[in-house]
Structure formats: C-alpha cells, structure tokens
Simulated scan of single mutants.
Amino acid sequence: MSAILREQFSKYTDLTDGEFEYVLSHFTYRKLKKHQFLLQEDEWALNDYFLLSGCVKSYYTDVSGKMHILLFAVQDWWITDYEAYYDQKKAKVNIDCVEDTEVLCLTAENREKLCQELHQVEHFFRKKTNRRNVALQNRILSLLSSTAKERYEAFVREYPSLVQRLPKHILAAYLGVTRETLSRLYSSK
C-alpha cells in the first residue's frame, strides 16, 4: 500500500528509501466502510488524508439542507477541510466514504515537522498545493460559466471511471444539477 504514496512522491521529488520510510512513519493508517465519515462538520480537522483505495466526497450542507459537493477523492488523491486543517479550526465540510476506503492520515504537526526536516517533502507539498489551487479555480470557473451539459461532458472526459462509480444523485449534486437533469444528460450521450 505504501507503494502508492511512494509513487506519488516520486512524481515531484526524489527520496531515498530511508527518507521515504521516515516520511511514512509519520502517517497512520485507517480503513473505513462505505458511508463512514473521515471528517464531520464541527470536528477538528486533525489530518490530511491520502487515499490508498476507495472514494470519498467532501460536501457542505446549507441551511435549507441542500448538499453541495465540493470535490471527490479517489486512490492517489489527498483530501481534508484545508482551512480547518491549516488554521487548526473546526471543519466546515463533511467528508464521507462513497465506497469502502483506506487512507493514510497525516497530522498538521507531522506535516510541518517533515517539511522542516526534509526540503523534498516541503517541495512535494508546495507542488501538490499549487495543483489543488488550479483545480479548484477551474472548478469554480466551470460552475460560473459552463452549462450543465458542458460540466457533465468535462467530468466524463476528465474522470471517466468515476462516472460509473458514483451514485447518480451524488454526481448530480457535484455538477450542480437535479437528478432529472443528469438523467437527461445521460440519455443524450
């Protein structure tokens, strides 16, 4: 399982076997079942989660009870409530498992320790943060300027395997459409 994390680090930086084992020793492992929460609103966001397997969704529920899905994470992706994680606050979002999921957990304290001790780890997290910022900007721009059909087609292009894995109501919530609209988009393909 640690090979997945090792592979991700190797995309951005070189770590010796010893350095990687040291980095890995700062993570803890968790196995969760479908519908179990990694993080709930108003809990302390103690960890950043690296997915070894499964699928999770991050979402916010507004005062009317409507779910707004911010993002998904699957194998080889990171997820948490980043404002809460970095600022040591309580979470605003929920993160729960769409499928049975395995994660490696990294506390903010251990992340900072690793970044101070190993320049390569700091470089890795800077690169990952840059990519996340670009992806979130593109998601916001898509929600503001694209039609439902364009958002759906882009999602299918970018994440073809997720389309089959996600329940239709969850995909609809992510795209900002009703389930009925999503069904029409499905049938028009």
Rank of each mutant, 00 (worst) to 15 (best):
A73R: 00
K89M: 13
N133A: 15
L15I: 05
F155Q: 11
S25P: 02
Q137F: 10
K189R: 15
I95H: 01
W78M: 09
S187G: 03
L114W: 03
M1G: 10
E21R: 13
A3P: 00
V74I: 13
S188P: 01
L71G: 09
E122K: 14
Y59T: 03
H119D: 10
D17A: 14
V103F: 12
V134T: 14
L175K: 05
L182N: 07
P160N: 10
L106F: 04
L136E: 12
H26I: 01
M1H: 13
E102A: 12
M67Y: 01
L106A: 04
E102M: 07
R184H: 14
L51M: 09
R139T: 10
A154T: 13
K168G: 00
Y29I: 01
W78T: 07
A108C: 09
G18N: 14
A135L: 13
R157I: 06
C55L: 15
Y186R: 13
S145N: 14
V93T: 11
Y186A: 00
R131A: 15
K90R: 15
H26G: 01
K90C: 08
T13F: 06
K127C: 14
W44P: 04
N47Q: 10
Q8L: 15
Q116S: 13
G176P: 04
F9T: 06
L39Q: 09
L136D: 12
S58Y: 00
Y59P: 00
H68T: 09
A45S: 15
V163Y: 10
L171R: 06
N47T: 12
F20P: 02
N133T: 12
L143Q: 11
D87N: 14
K57E: 07
S188W: 03
P167S: 05
L51I: 13
K31R: 15
T147E: 04
H26L: 02
F50M: 08
D17G: 11
V134M: 13
E41D: 05
S187M: 11
E21M: 08
Y49M: 10
V74K: 11
V156P: 03
R179S: 13
L70C: 05
W77L: 05
K168F: 00
L46Y: 07
T129E: 12
R151V: 09
R165I: 07
D42I: 01
F72Y: 15
Q137H: 11
L51W: 06
V121Q: 04
E43T: 09
R184E: 08
H169V: 04
T178W: 11
S145T: 15
A154W: 03
E153M: 08
L182M: 05
Y186N: 13
K113S: 10
V177F: 05
F27K: 02
E180G: 04
